[in-house]
Nucleic acid binder design. Structure first.
Lengths: 200, 200, 200, 200
DNA sequence: TTGTAACCGAGACGGTACGTCTTGTCTTAGA
DNA sequence: TCTAAGACAAGACGTACCGTCTCGGTTACAA
């Protein structure tokens, strides 16, 4: 009973789609999120504005799609498992820190997170399509550690993942301190050992 | 050598200042951050636009000031110290969760965090005027716990604070899961105990 | 030397042609000329836009064709000749006035005249296919009057026609005054008698 | 009780006003009425679009104002009265013909007439502010002719003016024939003498 | 007591971008 | 092959705000 005529995806121009996503990423990295405009993306992509409005409901969703294309390339890999949990976690957290410090990722990811903060629907989409798959990979590694006796049996794996990655993401987004590999290692060590003193 | 004539703070209209801050908070809660405009704030406050531009360099800083007034009322208190570290931490984390779930705080705080994500200068200001004072209070409580033998001596207190509050803030900002008091308690328990199994 | 492949008229769909012309007239009467769009005509006629662009070079020409179909139905008749020139002229001018006051003709004719004002090619087409045939009919009646001694021998018949019809058309287009049958009669009387006083 | 806040004319920028009117006339002469855009006028005038929308309700009214400025310069003069009505009328009609053939006037006047044809409110404004004052001047000359016995006492002066100027305006707008000084003279002669034969 | 210098409200200004609409061209499916 | 349908690049539409500027009106300190 919808009165809005939806566009026919089978007629969609793949050329235009790609040009738009590429232009969006280029522009957000170049001028920053605040100055990113649909008008600018259309011009940079050599595309009519309507072609953007036809296929994306908002700048946030467009950016998300663009970001998916960026991240989707080499992300499917499982976390490395050398048998040494601490080392493996430090490896992945250091890699995360490096990625977040790379301007190529930093600006578009900040833009995406901004949109997520204000758009619950986008947040849900993000959680389902990006966060959850990667969270599963992390939990897989933690499960293996549990089997190997390197992780407590009764730990809530979601809380564990949050404990390891939350501090890094937070420090990145809010710049409450320098985001260094050393910080990442300290987080891993502290999270694994816990805050309480060792029993004597 | 400045050519810009700075305004004279002694002549500032306190009425206008308050009207602007109040209008800013009201509006951001009403129409959301994306649709918040200086023009709208000026109109709602019954104030000329120039009066806003004269005293605040950006929408973010204005919002930050407004937020300071909101938060500053009852925040100076130290964290409670009953001698039971876990209980005290759960108390403060549950209170934080409640605050973040209160729409009165949720929307303006999201707005502020958005600005922080994109404006390093504002982030520094935020870190200095809001984050650090509160972080010191938290570290005070942790230091007391160290003295009482409830916290390992060699724990980096900043990392400890991040481990406890990072997951909550993250889940709030990115909505990667429900933000409940139970989650807060699980974070405290897990952080205190650590992820590794107990030694036999 | 045209590089543009012309469509083959023998394959033209008569149904589509008629639907387009009808829709054009309906729409111009309904929404006015300014808001008349090719898009709208195509939609109203149940026709693809390309079908319009294939057969008509511009909105003006399309409108002209549509108008030709409207006017062509009952227009071939000669002007009545009762022997009384003044009465016959008043009859035809009153009929013209009535037609111009009929909304069914008023709006599309205004639209057509607008296009003519700005498009010399269309004006030439109009002059040749509509104005001249009708002007000939009028001049025929005037020639008969000359033979009957009711019109001066040396009057330029084109000027005579302009003198009779120009004021009516003008008042219609520019709305410089009410367009009534009485006005038409006064024009006829004045034109016939002339502005100069009668010789004593 | 109007809810629309009207702009304050006392604060209006005369510079901007003049730049807009000049740009409008320049552009309409350059690209024609159909391709005349508010956007283009704003750009050519070095003015924000809102400055145009603030002060003019439509393109037609803007054009009319621009045209008023053009025509208003040297138009207040009465028609010459040498005592020879025919000669005086031929003079003014030849001048009119020349003006209409001057591209400097032709294009903007066509644009204005187009708008008048479709906008009754604008037509009324035009009639009152341009047509009527000039019509009065013409009627003044005709009244003088009546007093001098060169014009019939019982002629309707409005009809007389229409008889003289209607054919010229018509031929100009619709290009039904060449608009020459000779044609103007023939119109004057025919209108004065009338179409009927002289009594013997 | 009166300048006079600043803030105040208001809002016009030159601009940018919005999201929608129309144009004329090009592409695809189906009869 | 021609049709309808409609996606496409282009760009004007009228609106909302941007940040700057100027206008009078009103304090409040200084002469």
């Amino acid at each position: 009973m919808s009165t809005k005529a939806l566009p026919d995806p089978s007629r969609r121009s793949e050329t235009a789609r790609r040009a738009i996503l590429t232009a969006a990423l280029d522009l957000v990295a170049e001028v920053g999120y605040a100055k990113l405009s649909i008008e600018g993306i259309a011009k940079a992509a050599g595309v009519g504005k309507q072609t953007i409005y036809r296929w994306w409901p908002s700048k946030g969703v467009l950016l998300f799609d663009a970001f998916l294309g960026l991240a989707g390339d080499g992300d499917a890999a499982a976390l490395s498992d050398t048998g040494d949990l601490a080392a493996d976690l430090k490896l992945v957290l250091r890699a995360t820190v490096e990625e977040l410090n790379d301007p190529r990722f930093d600006l578009p990811m900040r833009a995406l997170h901004t949109e997520i903060v204000h758009d619950p629907a986008l947040a849900a989409d993000y959680a389902k399509r990006l966060d959850e798959p990667m969270r599963e990979l992390k939990k897989d590694r933690l499960r293996a550690a549990q089997r190997a006796g390197q992780l407590a049996e009764d730990v809530d794996l979601d809380v564990a993942v949050d404990l390891l990655f939350g501090p890094i993401l937070n420090r990145w987004l809010q710049r409450t301190g320098p985001l260094t590999p050393e910080y990442a290692e300290r987080v891993v060590d502290t999270a694994l050992r816990g805050l309480r003193p060792r029993e004597p």
